[in-house]
Write a protein that binds this DNA or RNA. Structure first.
Lengths: 375, 375
DNA sequence: CTGAAAGCGCTTACAG
DNA sequence: CTGAAAGCGCTTACAG
């Protein structure tokens, strides 16, 4: 009865009781059981007979009992919280594109949402550098405020990974540790989105439309000769390159080198890259881009340089591509958040695990496929 | 010594100790004092002699002691946490502009940053509706997970305000409760940014440049005849209107009605509004806009309809205006977050207060001025 | 399956 | 200013 959220429909005494303190003792007394049984109803219902369970649940509902989280944490030595770093969305200094914060913000939102379902709190923290981040993490972990960590933007040599690995802190990273000898080390669980798969989807979409003069705009000229990508940039580049290479005839006409241009991450860079691409490859009809900002730049510039109808695809499906109506690749951050959470917590239950990935069948590496949002 | 964040510089035994459990008892033993004195050093240093203070601090530093937060919360009945709602940045359904999430995301970031300095944790939560938000807040408050709330997008009739007011939950809203009879009710503390002041700054900037044919693009046609604004939309509109009204001569030439156009919040709406404005007011040289998305639409469309060099100003100074290089108004979210925090916590100290605004001199209403970022 | 006892690590209130 | 005692509200481990 007290469960109704419609405050205005409740009479005054009931409204006053809405946030009233109720302890486990009061519930136990009202239900005629001991406090341990109340605790069991909440934490180990399988240990209680159905009759007792129902009786106690009813009283809990009636009195609006919610366990004190500090007491629970103290006794059980579990905070039921995870920490996630947030950064500023305001791109200060060098431009970071139109919507630098989109992926992170949406990931944090989806993570909070999936965490709530399993009764886990999400605590945000900030840091200016790896060093200050280590200090923040240390405080959060030593004070037992969090049981596990969600890290992102990790690289192979990363003091944060040293910290969590050495102390066996449960963690997951969103993003592969680019540059690591073994991306699939069981010591480093991660969830990521397959960039190559994404750009190959976009490339194939153009090919299916009989559009063959397809270029690419990325951030940095790929250095490595490896067959495997070594960065997000290379990952997204290779999807386009490999798909194009399978089209032998096309490459003969105009080689891949003349079809790819690289810049930084901004609309202006997209414009610049588009002008350069148009010089090197005047027949260009479609451009696969590493980001929505680059794609927007390419799209806007195409009109200036007299390309009748350029098709572009971006990456991230952020509001930019929605607003300007071009194709993009959705990272499905709901699924990314869900997978991250499940690697950390298991598919059920509500406690963060110290997973021994080396000996468990749990998959510590989840590579998800982005979805093509054709527009 | 254990305070150094540079893990790689530490030898193995020291690194291992980095996250080791240290209790208050160990600190007390090592310092040769009682645990209460250690507690006082941390929570009430004025009660301890300087000699003892220094001695204990040294041991705390040496052992890397960080108090267990659950124990502290349980005993002191303070969670030292505040809750803030986060929403999805992905605009699903009706378009919400290019960067709908910017203000909220940056506010949450700045709030987390200022909270960390004062030792307060920020817990994020999500909700689909007021009803589900009430349930989330109820759980957070009853479980004593948070001491105070940061609310936003509040309106006059808002079940969340009923809840917090009735139960005297410390809270602050970012944004005025538009529509309330008395915006300055001591029951409803808020921090907000002065939209009128912002658009008048932009209008005056154009006037100072001897540009007089200034139009306005907003979201909704202002209904009220009140001298005071009744919504964000009206607030931003009135800054332009009042500034223009002071320029009698200009208004005679072309009246204000022909200079203002309204649409929704998207780049496309900005384009549409610009076409309409150009018809009604062909001399237009500059447009003050209610948002960066509208401003971008106006700017892009101006080229299509043959306006040589249109000046536009947006609002929020988000990456869109930075990337496209037009003037905008910065809400200074660092200051908004800082003020919000200080109304909730006081200027010093580290506990959330139940402020009796009616009897305290504390200013419960802070209206900040946005800064003109001229480009 | 149920309940009496112990105790998680602190801070508070108070005696010395 | 300092320290011995009490206790915050739970969960755990164990006895019945």
């Amino acid at each position: 009865m007290l469960g109704s959220p419609f405050m205005e429909e409740l009479d005054m005494p009931t409204r006053k009781k809405f946030l009233e303190n109720v302890s486990i003792t009061e519930v136990a007394d009202a239900a005629g059981v001991s406090i341990q049984t109340v605790s069991n109803v909440l934490n180990a219902p399988e240990k209680v007979t159905e009759k007792t369970l129902l009786k106690v649940m009813k009283v809990i509902e009636h009195l609006g009992y919610t366990p004190n989280s500090a007491a629970r944490s103290l006794r059980s030595a579990k905070s039921s919280s995870i920490a996630v770093r947030i950064d500023s969305s305001a791109s200060s200094g060098p431009l970071k594109g139109l919507y630098a914060g989109f992926i992170q913000d949406e990931f944090v939102f989806q993570l909070t949402k999936v965490s709530e379902i399993r009764g886990i709190k999400v605590i945000s923290y900030t840091a200016d550098s790896h060093e200050s981040e280590i200090e923040k993490l240390r405080t959060l972990l030593k004070s037992k405020e969090v049981d596990g960590l969600i890290l992102s933007s990790t690289v192979d040599i990363d003091p944060r990974l040293d910290l969590v690995t050495l102390h066996q802190i449960p963690f997951i990273t969103f993003g592969r540790p680019w540059g690591a000898k073994n991306l699939y080390s069981t010591k480093h669980p991660w969830v990521d989105v397959d960039g190559s798969f994404g750009t190959s989807l976009a490339t194939n979409m153009f090919l299916d439309k009989k559009i063959t003069n397809i270029g690419f705009i990325g951030w940095v000229f790929p250095k490595h000769k490896d067959p495997d990508p070594q960065s997000v940039n290379e990952d997204r580049y290779l999807g386009w390159r490999n798909t194009m290479q399978s089209q032998i005839k096309l490459i003969k006409t105009s080689p891949l080198e003349s079809r790819a241009v690289f810049g930084n991450e901004s609309v202006e860079d997209g414009r610049r890259a588009m002008r350069e691409l148009h010089k090197k490859f005047p027949e260009v009809q479609a451009v696969v881009c590493a980001s929505d900002s680059l794609a927007l730049g390419a799209l806007l510039e195409s009109k200036n340089i007299g390309i009748r109808e350029l098709l572009v695809s971006g990456f991230d499906n952020n509001p930019v591509s929605q607003e300007f109506g071009f194709t993009s690749l959705d990272q499905n951050l709901r699924q990314v958040a869900k997978s991250s959470f499940e690697v950390l917590m298991g598919e059920e239950g509500n406690q963060i695990r110290r997973i021994d990935f080396a000996n468990e069948s749990t998959n510590a590496h989840v590579l998800l496929r982005p979805a093509l949002i054709a527009r």
